[in-house]
Structures are given as structure tokens and as C-alpha cells.
């Protein structure tokens, strides 16, 4: 166990996992907010596009998205982010994690919007706010506060889903490093539990934090 820890960069692997999680969390929050706005907008075409995005992306396995990004988009269509294969795969992993979880962020936010009584949106429009203004001043602030708990679940799922990136990333993040250790040293339960513990340490505090935040930030009605 000790010599494995000194031979392999386990902390570095979890650092890459954290990087992927943070970058993809930001990316998915941005894309997800845009898609959520499309889904609640008064324009039918935008609503349709948003619905199509959520249904297509949410129902596609992440594994398929991952492999397709490098094999299909990057290698066959030439959409290269970097000439260096490992850098290219890293950014594609971030993009695909963002795109995939954006669908879930969108639905979480939409559920947040739905907690707001319809009268508030009508009131906002009737005092002369535009759609953008009523979103910014009335709907989104309450929607985010109402959607804290499902957003937290999505973030936890995202952290665990970074392991799927090992499919294209090689042995840089946690799951890839685990498969490399298994290849060289044979499968060992203690090592497996060590990696599992790493993920528990990453996700459990987040779960506690989001639960308490969802209680403190909930809009009292």
C-alpha cells in the first residue's frame, strides 16, 4: 500500500478530478442557465430548442458522448483544441461533462422557476419589466434559491461522472490512475477503497453543505 502511494501520483490524480469537476461545474451552470431561460422564454422556437437539447443530451450515455467527442468530432472531423492529444482530450472531457450536466442543471433550475407563483411573473410584466428584466430581478434569483438542493445533487453526480473521462483521458485522473495501478500491481481491495474514500471526501461535505444551504436560502412563502 505504502509503496504504491509513493510510486503513483494519487493526489495528483485527484487534483485532475477536482479540476475537471470545477471547470465542468462552471461550464454546465452557464450552459444550463441559458437552456433553462430558453425553456421558460415566451418564444416557442426557443422553448422547442431547449426541450430538444435536454431530451437528447439527458438520454445519451455520457460514455458515448465522451468517446464520440474525441473519436468523432476531434479525430474524424478535425475539431482539434490542441495538437497535443492529451491536452485535446482534457478539454473535450471538460466540454462533454459541461454539455451533459447542463441538461440536468437546466431541469433543476426550471423546477426552481416552477416554485415561484405565476402571479409574480405576471406582476413583473404588468409593471413594465421586459422578459429579461423580470428574469434577472424576479425569477432567476428565486429560482436559484429554490433549486439549491437539486443543483447540489447534480454537482455530486458530476464529480463522480468525471471518472468516465478516463475513457479518453488516459491515466491522469483518479479512475484512469486506478486502472493503471490495477494493470501493474493486480486488483487490490485496499487500493479500491482508497479511491472510493477519495470520492467520499470530495462529495460528502458538499452534500452536507448543499442541504444546509437549501434550508437557509429557501424562499419562505
Amino acid at each position: 500500500m505504502g509503496d504504491i502511494l509513493s510510486n503513483y501520483n494519487v493526489l495528483g490524480a485527484f487534483w485532475v478530478t477536482i479540476q475537471l469537476s470545477v471547470l465542468a461545474a462552471i461550464g454546465s451552470l452557464l450552459i444550463g442557465t441559458v437552456v433553462a431561460i430558453m425553456r421558460v422564454s415566451p418564444v416557442a422556437v426557443l422553448r422547442g430548442l431547449g426541450t430538444a437539447y435536454v431530451n437528447i443530451i439527458r438520454n445519451t450515455p455520457l460514455t458515448l458522448l465522451m468517446v464520440f467527442s474525441v473519436l468523432g468530432l476531434s479525430l474524424l472531423l478535425g475539431l482539434q483544441i490542441s495538437e497535443q492529444a492529451s491536452t485535446n482530450a482534457y478539454w473535450w472531457a471538460v466540454i462533454m461533462l459541461s454539455v451533459y450536466h447542463a441538461a440536468f442543471v437546466c431541469e433543476a433550475l426550471r423546477s426552481g422557476v416552477n416554485t415561484i407563483p405565476a402571479g409574480q411573473a405576471e406582476a413583473a410584466r404588468s409593471i413594465g419589466l421586459t422578459f429579461a428584466q423580470s428574469l434577472r430581478e424576479v425569477l432567476l434569483p428565486q429560482a436559484f434559491r429554490g433549486a439549491i438542493a437539486p443543483l447540489g445533487s447534480t454537482l455530486i453526480a458530476l464529480i463522480k461522472n468525471t471518472t468516465v473521462a478516463a475513457l479518453i483521458l488516459g491515466a491522469t485522473e483518479a479512475a484512469g490512475t486506478l486502472s493503471k495501478i490495477t494493470e501493474n500491481e493486480g486488483a487490490q481491495l485496499p487500493i479500491f477503497f482508497l479511491f472510493a474514500l477519495g470520492f467520499v471526501l470530495l462529495t460528502l461535505p458538499l452534500g452536507v453543505l448543499f442541504t444546509s444551504m437549501s434550508q437557509r436560502l429557501a424562499v419562505k412563502r
Partner: peptide, 8 residues
């Protein structure tokens, strides 16, 4: 420094 793509 090999330019290596890794797949599953």
C-alpha cells in the same frame, strides 16, 4: 513527450 491518445 509522445503524442498519445488513450481510449478505453
Amino acid at each position: 513527450g509522445v503524442n498519445l491518445q488513450e481510449f478505453g
